[in-house]
Amino acid sequence: MLTMNNLSKVYRTHLVETHALREFSIHVEEGEFVAVTGPSGSGKTTFMNIAGLLEEHTGGSYELDGIEVSGLSDRRRSAIRNEKLGFIFQGFNLIPDLNLFDNVDVPLRYRGFNASERRRRIESALEQVGLASRRRHFPAELSGGQQQRVAIARALAGEPRILLADEPTGNLDSAMARAVMEILEGINAAGTTIIMVTHDPELAARARRNVHIIDGQVTDLSSSFAGTPVGAAVASA
């Protein structure tokens, strides 16, 4: 599903060069639930952004769902994000001036679905996160946990191959965080690959596989339970 080989990411400003990822190799199988942990500044977000085609890597190779993404045009990358990827952000990133229905509609419009197809998908996605009755509400009228559930619905509506969640529970209290985690587990159970960055050891422990990033490198690979059939990740030498 996702394979990075000897990937590197260097941020260059005129003053400094930051090697955010170095000799970074990882393989994620279809259907996995990967929890990514690591200290602040270790490169977790950089990994997620490159995995999600939000940023380009500076070296090595990255193959996503059978496509080598190096050198793809911006247009093509946008289309892949739209069709294959779902994003969940720490800050929810809902559009404040759109109601829930229109928020979930955003990626579907870029996809070019017709109105009835969009409506069907929006309603079923909102249903799935338990907010169908609130579709005319605006984000500011919801709690943080509810907002994150709308964001999950928005990510789900496009039926992505991979869900990328960068600290999805970072802004939530533990009860809300558990509710969000349960939804993610349900989605994963239905077959969607999930990669989630988290600082919460309890949530990380619930994932099928843990990846630890330190100083831009995958230094520790552990499965929360041994013998998982899909945990065949390749560590850098």
């Binding site: 939000l54 946008s78 994000r81 739209n82 559009i95 990626p107």
Partner: peptide, 14 residues
């Protein structure tokens, strides 16, 4: 700015 970035992440082209 953030909304624009989000839209781009969700698949909007330039």
């Amino acid at each position: 700015t953030r909304q624009i970035g989000t839209r781009r992440a969700l698949g909007a082209t330039r």
